[in-house]
Design a protein around this nucleic acid. Structure first.
Lengths: 197, 197
DNA sequence: AGACGCATTTGACGCAAATCAAAGCCGCAG
DNA sequence: CTGCGGCTTTGATTTGCGTCAAATGCGTCT
């Protein structure tokens, strides 16, 4: 199936009938508060699994940032597949463990890092993600808006923008285009990210 | 095995050779930054599984808050058990999914909630946890220190203390003892927690 | 009982990031 | 080409929470 940019294809609170696997594009996963405050819990790209809920309603929403292609399975179908292919279960457990580790890292970022550390950490993790597909380029592509980045890092768009400008002023990054970042000094940027990672 | 209060039995970065299952007591799970800043990612009580890492080093540390009793399995032993009892794998996937949902909720708290909302949310989630064991009492027991609560909520001990005092002043809770909270007005407290939950 | 040590509370002040506001920048439709 | 509407950047000001500091409470050891 396909979702054009901006389309919400999973809605927090809805009955969790389906399970998804993204085959191309990028989606934002988020939770919202009644007054509209939003926390993006992650960006889901190619290969990402979605909707592994034990509860019977989704705990998050998912929206396409870029056009997204995905496979959709009913929960019943998923259960069948899990029975037929035990290896799939092993794989899902592996994926879930990794996401859990990423979630804990993000909690550290949200709870204890400064704005500068958050943005630097974000750029580095994005760079890793990009480098996994393409080879080792210093270029990082950001398909999401500043608003998405802010809601992912627990900041405001203004703070994200100012921090990027500041990193640029310190010659750690270049910003040829708002959606394109060049890492000029990886070591220096890592030093600003406040951690071992 | 047993760990007395304060004992660290899992160390972030160490080789992830073992897998744990807590049988009694409470432990804090946390990640640290080089300069000592700490983010507690969760509190592990009876039945909690620990150390489900794909990577070969632990992504977090674990310390006993109260004396903790736990079972320890080598990773090899765990793999054997997973092969022998496929139901265990199903169970672990279930547990991991639930933790993932909890982690996302915590990201929302850390990224977007105010100090008051964080503390209120924390008390309510603790109350649920306690109510699961004992019946429905308005009493919430906090085995952890203010410092632990602060590091869990992304705040300082002073802010946690002030916020509790403020909630008490508003007659939403009572504090007979620093480690004992009485929820006087559950609905009112939920309204301060800033969410559906 | 007395006193030491540690956790917690309370108070005064400062600052990083939020908020409020306005000016670019850029892609796109006409 | 030109004007509109969006995202982004930059600037001025405010504020919630952090920091620094001191007092209070309480369990424990002698």
């Amino acid at each position: 199936m396909t979702a054009e940019a901006g389309r919400t294809f999973v809605n927090e609170g809805d009955s969790a009938d389906n399970f998804f696997n993204i085959t191309s594009g990028t989606a934002r996963l988020f939770k919202s508060l009644p007054d509209g405050r939003r926390q993006i819990t992650g960006f889901a790209g190619r290969g990402h699994f979605l909707g592994l809920a034990v509860s019977n309603s989704y705990a998050f929403s998912a929206e396409a940032i870029e056009p997204v292609q995905y496979c959709r399975f009913s929960r019943i179908k998923l259960r069948q597949m899990l029975d037929d292919f035990p290896a799939l279960e092993k794989r899902l457990l592996e994926v879930a463990s990794n996401e859990l580790v990423a979630a804990q890292e993000q909690m550290l970022l949200l709870g204890r890092k400064t704005a500068r550390e958050r943005v630097a950490s974000f750029l580095l993790s994005r760079k890793l993600e990009t480098a996994a597909c393409i080879s080792t380029t210093p270029h990082v592509h950001l398909p999401m808006t500043r608003s998405d980045i802010a809601d992912y890092l627990g900041l405001t768009i203004e703070t994200v923008s100012r921090t990027l400008t500041s990193l640029k002023a310190d010659k750690l990054i270049g910003i040829p285009h708002p959606a394109e970042i060049v890492v000029l000094n990886q070591t220096g940027l890592a030093a600003q990210a406040g951690g071992y990672n």
